[in-house]
């Protein structure tokens, strides 16, 4: 009888202990105390493969934070590619409330929700800061008959099938959308009729080879070819002129009368319900980081425009862009209700 009682007590106590302990370690994961956060290494996740834009960005952030000693814990970068960023987004949902994960994202975050790839959206994350921007550029072969972006728009107005637009992302994604937004602002009607040809990665060689009429891509992607003169840039989608040298000579679409911009922004996000102390820490750190020399150098090296927005401004920006993209996707019938 006594043994049974003892056993019961032991079992109950150990169960209770293990619950408390697991609760403790859980808590440690989410409330390690404000003063000494961060204590554990952070998990920096790139939702794409190694060498891609996201990967590059978050590795640069990690490096700068380390070099400037703004952050003392290790920030190893891991890749979690798939679903255009959707796989990582789903992963972040599982890590709700965690204080040790940071991810980088850009417009596809919004697009994959709007086109139905995933049910999660930017609202299921904690935006921390917008850091940089690249812009869309529209290039043609150096001997192309198009001299200005308006030439292209006029041709499209007359016959939407007369200009073949190529891009490296699939239909309904960035390269496609950024062009359509400009076309819409330029007054081109039937956007659905415009032929978009999606290539895997060889878009640049396709325009060089004259197989397509216009290549829609990121400004950073074709810089080498622009500098060598092999490609001619008709316009880019920033608010005003950017860059140096050849890039600075590229007119914006706005200058040429098309009232629209497209920002290929990149920013950092935490998982949903990231604890307040963590959000505050990172927003402060990032605000400091963008002022450092190391960050400036990194930006210049990669041709990233400074596009810093703090968490609240970033959220507002995301809301607005969400509406903008919605409009375009709806027109071409790719918006999932």
């Amino acid at each position: 009888m006594r043994i049974k009682k003892m056993v019961t007590v032991v079992v109950v106590v150990s169960l209770a202990l293990s619950l408390v302990l697991s609760g403790c370690t859980q808590k440690q994961a989410s409330s390690g105390g404000n003063a000494d956060y961060p204590k554990r290494p952070m998990e920096f996740i790139a939702p794409g493969g190694a060498g891609g834009g996201w990967d590059l960005t978050i590795r640069t952030v990690a490096k700068v934070l380390q070099d400037t000693k703004l952050v003392s814990v290790p920030m190893p970068v891991t890749n979690r590619p798939g679903g255009g960023g959707g796989v990582n987004l789903a992963y972040l949902q599982e890590k709700k409330g965690s204080d040790s994960i940071i991810s980088v994202y850009s417009p596809p975050l919004i697009l994959i929700n709007l086109n139905g790839s995933t049910d999660f959206s930017y609202k299921d994350t904690t935006p921390l800061a917008r850091l940089i921007a690249d812009y869309g550029v529209f290039v043609v072969a150096k001997d192309s008959k198009f001299q200005t972006i308006n030439d292209v728009m006029e041709a499209l107005k007359k016959d939407p099938k007369s200009v073949k637009i190529g891009g490296n992302s699939s239909a309904g994604s960035m390269d496609h959308i950024q062009f359509l937004m400009m076309a819409k602002a330029a007054g081109v009607k039937n956007l659905k009729e415009i032929d978009y040809v999606s290539f895997q990665e060889s878009g640049a060689s396709q325009i060089l080879g004259g197989h397509i009429d216009l290549f829609s891509t990121g400004l950073g992607e074709v810089q080498g070819l622009l500098e060598s003169g092999d490609l001619k840039a008709l316009a880019h989608t920033a608010e005003k002129r950017v860059g140096t040298g050849v890039v600075a000579e590229i007119p914006t679409v706005k200058e040429q009368g098309i009232d629209a911009t497209f920002v290929n922004w990149r920013g950092l996000f935490g998982p949903p319900e990231m604890p307040d102390y963590a959000v505050k820490y990172w927003t402060d750190v990032l605000a400091k980081m963008v002022e450092t020399e190391e960050w400036k150098e990194a930006r210049e090296r990669n041709n990233w425009d400074d596009a810093y927005l703090d968490a609240d401004e970033f959220k507002a920006f995301l809301d607005k862009t969400n509406e903008d993209y919605k409009g375009i996707l709806e027109e071409i019938g790719m918006l999932k209700k």
Partner: peptide, 30 residues
């Protein structure tokens, strides 16, 4: 294609290009 035009010819060269960019080199004709 990577060295002469700055276009990745394959998945691996795409990673190499990313690395070059991080080093501050712009692969391409220049």
């Amino acid at each position: 294609p990577m060295l002469t035009l700055g276009i990745p010819g394959s998945g691996t060269t795409a990673v190499m290009m990313g690395a070059l960019l991080m080093l501050g080199l712009q692969p391409g004709p220049m």
